[in-house]
Nucleic acid binder design. Structure first.
Lengths: 126, 126
DNA sequence: ACCATAATGATAATGAACAGCCATTGCCTT
DNA sequence: AAGGCAATGGCTGTTCATTATCATTATGGT
């Protein structure tokens, strides 16, 4: 039987109140602001749970642990800031890639990851 | 002093004779065809060396170890076959993303990863 | 050819992300 | 309100890619 706990509510709230994909650690830190004793194991378990019920989707990026965001959003791409490490959403045109696929290949999905500095970090040194 | 060994020559040959990014294991297997006693540690060391001198570039993909390819190739994207795990090159139109960047963001690089089944695996079950 | 030493290869050690364990907590049905 | 049991939290264990270690091999300047 699935139960509604304060920890799970807190983690759902974190995602409802943000507009960018969050890593496990970011979720943990954000949830701890409301539930200081929440453990990292619970965050891992709850993220897996929310993935399983299709409430979250994973945003996987190379060489880093996955981020998670609310499922069902309109098509968009992601921008990874190499200064602060945060991942942002950017609007996406989805029809760009139909023509470039070699013969015989079957396309399931695609992922466009942009890399640079976000507005907040563009003005800073480093 | 840097020495030219048979192992390093073999690894360079592997990349000169292929047209898709190779994982460490793929490089090891290919090099072993000519040098059966080559160790995986040497492959790791040599890949790092060739990266350092700019002869190779890394192709990083989410949740998997990086692939490597010859540096200096014309702009292209990558296709990851979810059946056989191989990564292929696909021709790239580079001007796809000029318009979609939010104000204040600085773009350093981008990476378009396509995911599906390659020509070889498209006909097979699974 | 000689030999200092760079490079190799087998294996142990590391590091990071995540899962398992288990005593304790607290949700929810009755 | 009470207790069965799902869920939690602190921890250890696992997994996997990669790196360190070290005795041995082999390259290249002399």
């Amino acid at each position: 039987m699935k139960r509604t706990t304060n920890q799970r509510k807190a983690i759902r709230d974190v995602f409802s109140q943000t507009d960018r994909p969050l890593s496990t650690e970011e979720v943990h830190a954000a949830a701890q602001r409301h539930l200081p004793r929440i453990g990292i194991a619970t965050v891992y378990r709850t993220l897996k749970l929310l993935l399983g019920e299709g409430w979250l989707t994973a945003v996987r990026l190379p060489g880093e642990p996955p981020r998670y965001e609310l499922a069902g959003k309109p098509h968009h791409h992601h921008f990874h800031c190499r200064a602060c490490g945060r991942v942002y959403e950017v609007p996406g045109n989805a029809e760009l890639l139909d023509s470039i696929l070699p013969a015989g290949f079957t396309l399931d999905s695609h992922d466009l990851m942009l890399c640079g500095r976000c507005a907040q970090c563009s003005g800073r040194p480093g």
